[in-house]
Amino acid sequence: MQRSALAVPKYQVVFEALRRDIESGRLPAGGRVPSEAELVERFGASRITVGRAVRDLQLQGLVERRVGSGTFVRRPPATAAVDCTFGVLVPDLPDIEIFEPLVQGLLAAPESRGHAFLWGGGEPAPAARAAAAWSRVQQYIARRVDGVFLAPLEGLAAGDDTNVRIVTALDAAGIPLVLLDRSAYPYPRRGPYDLVGIDNRRVGFAVTEHLVQAGAKRVAFLGSEMGVSTIDGRRAGYREALDVLGADTTLARLPLPSPDDRDAVAAYLASHAPDAVVCAHDRGAARLMHTLLALGRRIPDDIRMAGIDDVEYAGWLPVPLTTMRQPVAQIGEAAVAAMLERRAHPERPARDIFVQCSLVVRQSCGVRAH
């Protein structure tokens, strides 16, 4: 039988069943959640599916993981009173590795205590996220939440104004907004909202500077051309570094093709002969690394590489990746502080709050870590 296009994803079935068990008291506060093996047997689902459902429960603050002990239902605060109710909307959570620890940092921040958080986002199908995000914002407005934390959608089709519609609707409803990681507008526009993240232009400059100082002469850039504000900022920093350092700027206008297109990458290497690549994020760096190795290129001997984010697997790639580490949990904590300050002082100018990154030197850049 063909599965209906409207069928509920299996992970969501597991999530909703466990949430009902928690809310009804069948899984009491402080009680242990069944193990992954037990949940796999109960729901006839894979470990990946069960793991995602439990992760979403954790992101909503319903359960907590204890290393070596398992997962437990979180106890409610000592007081039942809730000072504020905030909406959290991160539509691209499934595809962008930094968002899960960022949201965990937001929910775990000391200043989050006494406040309630409503969760939205994480739809698995990218095509469904814009509509789902807009629907969720309407729910937040109807509930008159006290503020919204938003990570604007990236990679929207040309002419899709979902991000602008969302922030405009929250403005009209008088609901404070703090942006996570990126602007709702194309780079370099920012809009009249507090934004908490990293300074993408300076990060792009720093990682390019490192490769040039390591000996790179022809540095290429790998990043989406779809108008993602974070990537556009990193690309601007990359170009600025080449110019300031007097490096060859030939490849600044010749972006690398998709890292999964082996033939196109091979043609690019043959035509333009880069000896280093700045990757806008570690996810792209990992894909490009596998392609370069499959083409017989040695890293870092033939091509030096560096990324941005320091995701969990960056140090476990075939050639451990040099990258700029984002302190994503700190971004979440800073976002809570920014929201509470915005509520207390709504008349103050909007701010960019940048958390400091650090360079993690590994084998891919050809420089020994100190």
Rank of each mutant, 00 (worst) to 15 (best):
Q2E: 13
R3L: 14
Y11T: 02
Y11V: 00
V14R: 10
F15L: 15
F15T: 05
R19G: 13
E23W: 08
E23H: 06
L27D: 00
P34E: 00
E36H: 07
E38F: 10
S46I: 10
I48F: 14
V50R: 05
D56F: 15
L59N: 12
Q60H: 05
P76D: 02
D92P: 03
D92Q: 03
L93K: 11
E97L: 13
F99R: 05
E100P: 00
A108S: 15
A108H: 12
P110Y: 07
W119C: 04
W119P: 03
E123T: 15
E123R: 12
W134C: 04
R136F: 09
I141H: 02
A142Y: 02
A142E: 15
V145N: 11
V148T: 04
A151I: 02
E154C: 10
G155D: 14
T162S: 13
A169E: 08
Y185P: 01
G197L: 07
N200Q: 11
N200S: 13
G204S: 07
E209Q: 14
H210N: 05
G215T: 14
A216H: 04
T230C: 08
D232Y: 00
D232L: 13
G237D: 02
Y238G: 01
V244I: 13
D248V: 01
L254Y: 04
P257E: 10
D261S: 07
V265P: 13
R283M: 14
L288P: 14
M289G: 09
L292G: 08
L295I: 11
L295T: 12
R304P: 05
D310H: 01
L317P: 03
A329I: 03
Q330W: 07
A335Q: 06
E341N: 14
R342P: 05
E347W: 12
P349L: 03
F354R: 06
V355S: 10
C357V: 01
L359D: 01
V360F: 10
G366Q: 06
A369L: 09
A369D: 11
